[in-house]
Simulated assay, not measured.
Amino acid sequence: MWLLNILTGMRKVTVSETERAIVLRKGRIHAILGAGEHRIWARDVLERHDLGDPVFTSPLAEALMRGHAELAWAHLTEMRTDAGEIAVIERDGRLFEVLAPETRRLLWTDAGPWAVTRVDLSDGFAVDRALGDRLTRARMTHAMTVVEVAEADVALMFVDGALAEVLEAGVHRFWTAGRTIVVKRVDLRWRAHDVTGHEILTRDRVSLRVNLAADFRVVDPVRAVTAVRDFEDALHRALGLAFRKTLGALTLDALLADKLAVDAEAADAVRAEMAELGVEVGAITLKDVILPGEMRDILTGVVAAEKAAEANVIRRREETNATRSLLNTAKVMAENPVMLRLKELEALEAIAGKVERLTVHSGTDGLMNDIVRLRD
């Protein structure tokens, strides 16, 4: 046989079940060989393709489709998408590839069977839930955007810079399709915002720092996101400016005397400004007033002096009351000798309780006559 091949200028090639081969004769496409043994000219060029990779990739692809259409359709399947279309390709019932708009794919027909599901993007960018679940399980999410929105949040979806949809809680999927999709999540719960170390100059030109806190929540997420670049930063500025204006009109003594009045005075301006941005502001609190070191020392001295003066007044008042009480007692004793004698006995009892032994020189009769006898 080999001698016959040499004499006839032929050669034998074998193509396996998992292969296909393109025969080039004199530089032109001649045939596509399936599985089996084939005889070709010795000078023919053979281009082998493994069906393990079902996508037909070859520099001969365009020439084959243009000049040998019948031969190509006998072995290849073409998948093509329009500008506003996405195609989901399945191979033997399993997801194989997602084609973006204006994309063409050539597949070996024998590597199938093939099926295609086409999605018209003019109907919207949302991905069918069942199809989206299949693509997610197959980890084929490159052609879509997956958005997960928590229970207390909403999400604003911008497509090519324009607001397209407000997404509620749940999982949402959208075809990217060559577009830029940006999602901004907004928390609708009550939150606290702190303004720390805000410097203020009071009316009497005392420089101090204050710490503020405000409770807020977003009631209109579209306005909150689109009206300003950052609504929390806007709240921060509004709190700072309102309290700077309010506290700057007060003296230090007035500020320290009633902080709650200052809170109520500045709150309305902040609430009105933030309501225009779709943000509801609740309680606003002036938490701390921090004085500079020198002023703190001065105020500490003033407070110490005031307390010392108050203590001195109280001490003098108590001394006066004690003196008045002694005077009254003396008057009672002068007018009533019995009371005087009772006082003497009390003093004697107090003395006797503090010593171990008490000696009375005048005897019992003298003690009773001199101390106990209650008469003039």
Rank of each mutant, 00 (worst) to 15 (best):
R189D: 07
T103L: 03
A21T: 11
A214N: 10
D53Y: 03
R271T: 08
L241W: 03
E199S: 14
M157Q: 07
R209V: 04
V45W: 02
V281K: 10
T364M: 06
A214W: 06
K307E: 02
V45N: 02
E19Y: 08
T77G: 01
T103P: 02
G282N: 04
S362D: 11
V149D: 07
V15S: 01
H198N: 12
L342P: 00
I22L: 15
A238S: 14
A164V: 03
A214P: 09
A69W: 00
H30Q: 10
V98I: 11
L156E: 02
T226W: 09
L239K: 00
I40A: 02
R105P: 00
A242W: 05
H68P: 12
G363N: 05
F174T: 07
K259Q: 15
R205W: 00
I89G: 09
D44Q: 08
L135W: 03
E19V: 11
P221C: 12
R11W: 05
K331S: 12
V289S: 11
K245S: 10
L188D: 01
T323P: 00
V149I: 09
F96N: 05
A164C: 05
W2A: 15
A155G: 08
E319N: 12
T323L: 14
W190Y: 05
R43A: 11
L340G: 06
E17V: 10
T57E: 14
R185D: 00
L367K: 04
L299S: 07
I22W: 03
P113A: 03
V159C: 05
A305T: 06
L345F: 05
L260H: 14
R317V: 01
P221R: 12
W73F: 12
A126F: 03
G240Y: 01
A61P: 00
V338P: 01
H236D: 15
N336K: 15
A227H: 11
E294W: 00
E349P: 01
T109L: 10
V210H: 05
L345Y: 04
T180V: 15
W2L: 15
D220K: 01
A214G: 09
S325T: 13
N312P: 00
M140A: 12
A87G: 14
D215E: 15
K307C: 00
T145G: 06
E319T: 13
L208V: 06
V332C: 03
D220G: 08
V23H: 08
E344I: 13
L374E: 10
G178R: 04
A275D: 13
H172I: 08
R375G: 14
G112Y: 13
D120S: 07
T77I: 02
G67W: 06
I6Q: 14
D365T: 13
L247K: 01
N211L: 07
A272W: 00
R373P: 00
I22S: 00
P113F: 04
V270P: 09
R217P: 10
R375I: 10
I22Q: 02
A63G: 03
E151M: 11
E265V: 09
G93Y: 07
L260G: 10
V146R: 14
L327F: 05
R223I: 12
A155C: 04
D204N: 13
S16M: 03
R66D: 13
R229W: 01
D370C: 05
T196Q: 13
D297P: 01
R191A: 10
A31T: 12
R357W: 08
R209T: 09
V116T: 14
R341H: 02
R80Y: 00
A35W: 04
L250V: 03
W175G: 06
V127C: 04
T285C: 06
G124D: 08
R375L: 13
I351Y: 15
